[in-house]
């Protein structure tokens, strides 16, 4: 077992690509679930809207990154409208059903050969946004001893975490405003809010749109980081990774999704690399687990973590017990 590799890759996973992408997706889910009580189980669909919108605009129409990203966000807004319209008047579980189905449908559409001229089919789109790394002002890597980052990684981290911080500030401002108060009230009891003259359905729509936009930003950052996009990156577990990250860090608090995403990817990477090390060093016999199966363990951990948190610690690792106690009424 090479512990330095395990620690290095764990630390790296906590601050690079996935941590950023899923922090953004989870910030979006936090608006939905944490503040409004909406169950969006199709965040992957919003991420796909952002990623593919950007990717298509750049590779097919030759747009630059800025307008292309904007196009991706516009797509996510349209998606939110389309999903919200039939479901937001109804009970929370209908939204869950429709969103999970929609995200899966989106994945199948972009994967299908029928639209592959535009979406690249199962291969996805490549060569997206070269300008992103071309404009990298950082010209040397950073070596911190345990972990080191290339200049490319550093550039992505600067931009990615910059976007995350921006989204957190936005969330902070919004949830402390009267607007945020309405959302939190809807989370508690929407009839009460209705009785006070607020158009609850419309607020839920606003929440769905905003959270979906954050999700789209996550998809955009993913696309820029890897300069490509593949349809299967937006399969259902993607949404639940983000959901687990959110619950882990604490839903309904500004830092929750960000801390949660870092922790989540730390845990996933740690087990992943540890298992692979153990297999490589024959600590785990191959009849019990091989390399492919080691890659599947992350899903089991994510799902188990989500279920366990919802049962035993809904407030997340750092949440407030006092608030959860109020649920029992």
């Amino acid at each position: 077992m090479n512990w330095s590799i395990i620690i290095e890759s764990t630390l790296e996973a906590m601050v690079t690509k996935n941590a950023v992408v899923f922090a953004l997706a989870a910030i979006g889910l936090n608006i939905h679930y944490g503040y409004t009580g909406l169950l969006n189980f199709g965040q992957a669909g919003f991420m796909a809207a952002g990623a593919y919108g950007t990717g298509i605009a750049i590779t097919q129409w030759g747009w630059t990154i800025g307008p292309a990203a904007l196009f991706g966000i516009v797509l996510s807004v349209l998606l939110a409208f389309f999903l919200g319209l039939p479901t937001l008047r109804l009970r929370a579980d209908y939204l869950a059903i429709v969103t999970i189905a929609a995200a899966e449908i989106i994945r199948r559409i972009v994967k299908s050969t029928q639209y592959s001229e535009v979406t690249g089919g199962s291969g996805g789109l490549n060569g997206i946004g070269r300008g992103f790394y071309d404009n990298n002002p950082i010209d040397s890597g950073l070596d911190l001893g345990i972990v080191s980052f290339s200049e490319r990684e550093l550039w992505f981290m600067v931009v990615g975490w910059g976007v995350v911080v921006l989204c957190m500030v936005l969330t902070y401002l919004l949830v402390r405003s009267p607007w945020g108060r309405v959302l939190k009230a809807i989370r508690e009891d929407e009839d009460a809010v209705r009785s006070l003259g607020k158009n609850v359905t419309w607020y839920k729509m606003q929440s769905l749109i905003l959270g979906g936009m954050f999700g789209a930003l996550g998809g955009i950052m993913l696309t820029l980081e890897q300069q490509s996009v593949q349809p299967d990156q937006f399969f259902t577990p993607t949404t639940f990774f983000a959901f687990t990250a959110l619950i882990l860090g604490g839903a309904g608090r500004v830092f929750g999704p960000v801390v949660g995403s870092m922790l989540f990817w730390g845990i996933i990477q740690f087990t992943d690399v540890s298992l692979r090390q153990a297999i490589a060093n024959d600590h785990i016999p191959t009849w019990l687990m091989d390399g492919v199966q080691a890659g599947q363990v992350r899903f089991i951990i994510a799902g188990g973590l989500l279920a366990a948190l919802m049962i035993f610690r809904q407030q997340g690792l750092f949440g407030n017990k006092r608030e959860v106690a109020l649920d029992d009424h």
């Binding site: 009580g37 169950l39 189980f41 929370a92 579980d93 869950a96 577990p237 639940f240 959901f243 687990t244 619950i247 199966q293 599947q296 363990v297 899903f299 089991i300 994510a302 799902g303 188990g304 973590l305 989500l306 279920a307 366990a308 919802m310 049962i311 809904q314 649920d327 029992d328």
Partner: peptide, 29 residues
């Protein structure tokens, strides 16, 4: 037991999602 604990329906729904992921990938495994 979850019902008896007074776990909310929404929470149970999310629990079922987690379980779905766990079971599905145990199957795959």
């Amino acid at each position: 037991p979850l019902r008896n604990r007074g776990t909310s329906l929404i929470a149970m729904l999310v629990v079922s999602i987690g379980l779905s992921l766990v079971l599905r990938y145990i199957f795959l495994y």
